[in-house]
Write a protein that binds this DNA or RNA. Structure first.
Lengths: 343, 343
DNA sequence: TTTCCACACGCAAACGTTTTCGTAAGGTTT
DNA sequence: AAACCTTACGAAAACGTTTGCGTGTGGAAA
C-alpha cells in the first residue's frame, strides 16, 4: 500500500528542491524546459495530486459549500441540493451535505464542525426545533466569523442574510384561487401548526384568497396537524361528515392522506371533492389520481441559493455588505385531482 | 466582521507563546493553573474553535467519510445515507455526500477531489455509466493510496474490498415465491437491461423461483426496460393483450407504472393481476393500492457500511487486510397490491 | 553561598502547499 | 578583464495545530 505521493517525495527522488517541483508542475517559466518535463513525467507516473487540505490551509479557503437541511430523506430538499451541486460544480466548488434531522443540537454541531475549516459558506434550511426555540446564535456566530450564509425555504426573519424563498402565501393563494375558479366554495385546508413558518404562510394565503373571492372563512374548515405520522387519523376525524367540495393540503402527504380518507368516506376525487397539494414530488406525479399541486421549483431554489453564496464568497466588499432575498415563482401544476370530469 | 480567532492571536493578546495556549486549552499540567484559567476564559470569550483543516493536515486524517451515490434525489440512497450518518456521528465522523449523477466522469472527479485530502475513506455505490464502462481505476487508485472503500448496493465483483449488499436474487425469489404462493402462475417481470447488476440479479432470482415451482419460464413474460422515463409506454406495449395474473417489478416506479397500465386495460389490481415491487419507498407505502414489496432496509445498509469503513479506518493491520461482504436480509412487506380480496 | 530540582513556559519541527526573494553559475557586453 | 545580465534553481515563510524537549527562574536543600 503506497502512501500518497507529495511534492517533497518527488523532490527527493529527482534531487531538486520542493519549490522547483511545485513550479515545474505549474509550468513556471522560471524552470528549465528540461526539468519541467522530467518533473511532470514523474508526477504523472506516481499519480501526484496536490493535497487539498494543505491548499485549504494555505489559501484559507476550502472551495467547499456546506449545505445543512432538516431531512435528507426528503424529495424537496434533495432537489434543492441538486440545484446547488449544479452551480457549485460549475464554479469549482465542492458540496458537503449534512442533515440536522430537525434537531437544534445537531444543527449547531454540524454548523460548528463545518465552520471550523471545512466550508467557506453555508446554505441552510433550519430545523423545526430551531424555529421553535428561536435560538439563532450559531447562525449569527458563523456570519460574524466572516462566513456567508444563505437561508432557504425555512428561513428566519430575524436573521439578516441572503435568502431564497418561495412566496408561500402567494402560492397558497394561487392554489386556493384555482379551487375557487373551478367552482368550489367549501374549501378545507390541511396545514401544520403555526410555528412552522411555511405552514403559517400558506394558511394566510388560503385566507387571503377566500377573502378576495368573498367566500366566508370558517374555523371548522381549518385543520392544523400536529403529528405528521398520524395525519390520516387526524384528517379522518376532521373530515367526518363535513360538507366540503375541496381540500387544500399544504404538502403532498396530507393531500394523499386526504384522498384516502375521502375515498373511505365514499367520496370521489375529483368528482365530489377536489384536492390540491403543495410541493411537486414523486407522490404528486404518480399517485392515482395524480395531484394538482403548487411546484416549488426546488432545483431553481438551489441554483439561486448557490449563486448568491458564491457571489458573496468571491465578491468584493460592496457585494458582501448587501443582502438579497430572492423569491422563486411557484407555479400551478394541473393534474387529475382537481379536474372536474364533467368539463 | 471579526475573523476567526487562532491560537496565535490569543497568544499575542495574552503575551504568552502559542504552545502555552494550546497546552492550557488541553488542561496540560505543564501550565500553571492561573495561566490555564486565563487562557480558557479568553478562548471562550472569543469563541475559539480549533481549525479542522490545520488539524487534518497535522494528523493526516480528516475524520470524514466520503459518500458517493448515483443519485441524490432517490429515496433508497437517502435512507442509506441516513444510516451512515447515524454511525458516523456516533463515532465522531463527518459525512460528505456527493452525487455522481450516474456519470462516470463525475464519479471520478468527485472521488479524486475527496481523496486528495477531504476524506479518510469512501462509501460508494457506482454510477450506471461506470458499470457499463467497466473502468474502475479510480476506485483501485484510492485504495492503493491507503484509503479504504466500502461498496454498497451497486457493487463491482472485480474490485476487492468491503461490500454491503442485499441478496438481490434471493429477494427477487422471495417476491416471486410470494406471487406463486397466492396462486399466480403467469407472472411477468419488468426489469432493467442486463448491465445494471441489481436488475440482472433480480431477474435471475425470478427465474430461479419459477424453476423451483416448476412453472415454465417464458421469454414473452420478460421485459427489459431501457428508458425509465418512458417506461409506461414500454410497459403498455408489453402488457397489451397479454394473459398474465401477476407482475413482478424490480423497482417502485415500474410497479406503479404497471398498475396504471393495467387499470387502463381494464384489469384490477390485485383482483385480476397481483403486483409486487422492490424497494420500500414513499410510493409503495402511499400508493393506492399500497404495494407489496421487498424492503432493502437501506438504513441498515448504511449502518453496516459505515461500521465496516470505520473498523478499517481505526483498525490495526490485520483488520485492514481482510475484506468482508455483508449481506443484508431483505424482507417481504405485504400490502394491498397482492392481496386476493376473496381471502 | 553553592547546588539542585521543580515548575512554568517557549522553541522548533512537522503536516503539504505556494510564492517571494535571494543567489550561484554562466554568458554577454564594453 | 571588469561589470552586468540571464537563467535556473533553492531557501524560507506562511497557513494553524500539536508536542517533545530545552531552558530560565525561583526556592529549597546542603
Amino acid at each position: 500500500m503506497k502512501q500518497k505521493v507529495t511534492l517533497k517525495q518527488i523532490a527527493k527522488e529527482l534531487d531538486v528542491s520542493i519549490s522547483t517541483v511545485s513550479k515545474a508542475l505549474k509550468d513556471s517559466a522560471e524552470i528549465s524546459l528540461d526539468t519541467r518535463q522530467k518533473v511532470k513525467a514523474f508526477a504523472k507516473l506516481y499519480n501526484y495530486k496536490p493535497n487539498n487540505i494543505a491548499l485549504s490551509l494555505k489559501n484559507r479557503k476550502t472551495k467547499t459549500i456546506g449545505v445543512i437541511i432538516p431531512e435528507i430523506v426528503h424529495h424537496f430538499f434533495t432537489t434543492v441540493i441538486g440545484g446547488v451541486e449544479k452551480v457549485a460544480n460549475e464554479k469549482g466548488y465542492n458540496v458537503i451535505i449534512c442533515s440536522s434531522n430537525n434537531s437544534f443540537d445537531k444543527e449547531v454541531i454540524n454548523m460548528e464542525m463545518l465552520a471550523s475549516g471545512s466550508a467557506d459558506g453555508f446554505i441552510l434550511s433550519v430545523a423545526k426545533e430551531t424555529q421553535l426555540k428561536k435560538d439563532y446564535h450559531h447562525i449569527e456566530e458563523t456570519m460574524n466569523q466572516g462566513m456567508p450564509v444563505v437561508l432557504f425555504d425555512r428561513i428566519i426573519d430575524e436573521v439578516v442574510c441572503d435568502k431564497v424563498i418561495i412566496d408561500d402565501a402567494k402560492g397558497a393563494q394561487t392554489a386556493t384561487n384555482h379551487l375557487l375558479s373551478i367552482g368550489c366554495k367549501k374549501i378545507a385546508i390541511l396545514t401544520t401548526v403555526d410555528y412552522i413558518s411555511v405552514g403559517k404562510l400558506r394558511t394566510n394565503g388560503y385566507l387571503r384568497a377566500l377573502r378576495a373571492y368573498d367566500v366566508p372563512e370558517k374555523e371548522e374548515y381549518i385543520l392544523k396537524i400536529e403529528d405528521i405520522d398520524n395525519c390520516e387519523t387526524e384528517i379522518s376525524e376532521f373530515l367526518k361528515d363535513k360538507d366540503i367540495d375541496a381540500v387544500f393540503a399544504v404538502n403532498e402527504l396530507f393531500a394523499v392522506a386526504a384522498i384516502k380518507v375521502l375515498n373511505k368516506q365514499g367520496k370521489k376525487v375529483p368528482d365530489d371533492v377536489a384536492v390540491i397539494g403543495f410541493t411537486d414530488g414523486i407522490l404528486s406525479k404518480h399517485f392515482i389520481p395524480s395531484l394538482t399541486t403548487i411546484s416549488q421549483h426546488g432545483e431553481d431554489m438551489g441554483i439561486r441559493a448557490a449563486k448568491l453564496l458564491i457571489d458573496k464568497l468571491e465578491g468584493d466588499d460592496e457585494v458582501i455588505e448587501e443582502y438579497r432575498t430572492v423569491i422563486i415563482d411557484t407555479s400551478l401544476v394541473q393534474r387529475q385531482s382537481t379536474k372536474k370530469t364533467k368539463e
